[in-house]
Write a protein that binds this DNA or RNA. Structure first.
Lengths: 125, 125
DNA sequence: ACTTCATATCGACATCCATCAATTTATCGA
DNA sequence: TCGATAAATTGATGGATGTCGATATGAAGT
């Protein structure tokens, strides 16, 4: 025979919505993610959740000058140009890529510190 | 008038499939993600791309003893038990959570180093 | 103005996904 | 053996998402 311990009948964990915290230095272990925060932080990971978008980031990061235009990205991914533009837009909206238009071309580059900041979200979960 | 420079007509970036690399120490900037790698790495981020799953990780991490059972998780998320079980399964499959059954209860805890490892993927993109 | 090229946007379609209600599985206590 | 409880599984459904073809926008050169 064995003995199993459990606290009361059901749950007992707090879940606090930290409102607008003053944007500084998450001390690691606080209340637990509220619904709003979670939704916002999930957006970045949603952008990272597609294989082709990961490859886009990788290629852009390793490209000469740290930037690449759409025409440089369609072939290695074996995707149509509209699809690549679509993925790039998602990455830009997520704050991971920066878009700069020069002439007819649109050059995409990594937003400095964006990946590190995203990594920080995981550490501060 | 302005002058725009571009290399040849179209793309020129290499994309190499590194086959089974011997599982060691990615030196930061290599070939660029191949299709297979990208697909595999996207799985973890797919698991992280849902707000409720982020909250699950957060709650489990902050729970007493570093573990929590399903019955402790349904209420704070305001989700049905089957849905929570579904999310937990996805997190386990992604290698982020560990499941241990004791008695009637199933206790979930963070896989040590899993979040850090995931953060490492971003740095090594 | 007209053509050409790079990119963005639109509309459609097939697939995936989060969620729930209902059921099943499994374990404990009586 | 028989409930009672916790959790997983199944089936269904509405909504999001990746992809493409076609079209629109916009800038450069002739």
């Amino acid at each position: 025979m064995s003995i199993y311990v459990h606290n009361g009948q059901m749950n007992s964990l707090q879940t606090i919505e930290p409102g607008l915290d003053e944007a500084c230095c998450a001390p690691s272990d606080l209340p637990a993610l509220g619904a709003e925060e979670a939704q916002q932080k999930a957006l970045v990971f949603k952008a990272l959740s597609d294989p082709n978008r990961l490859r886009l980031l990788s290629i852009v990061k390793g490209a000469g000058g740290g930037e690449a235009c759409v025409c440089d990205l369609t072939e290695p991914l074996d995707l149509g140009q509209p699809t690549v533009s679509h993925h790039l837009k998602i990455l830009v909206d997520a704050g991971l890529l920066h878009r700069e238009k020069r002439g007819t071309w649109a050059y995409y580059s990594l937003v400095p510190g964006a990946l590190e900041k995203t990594a920080g979200i995981l550490a501060a979960l």
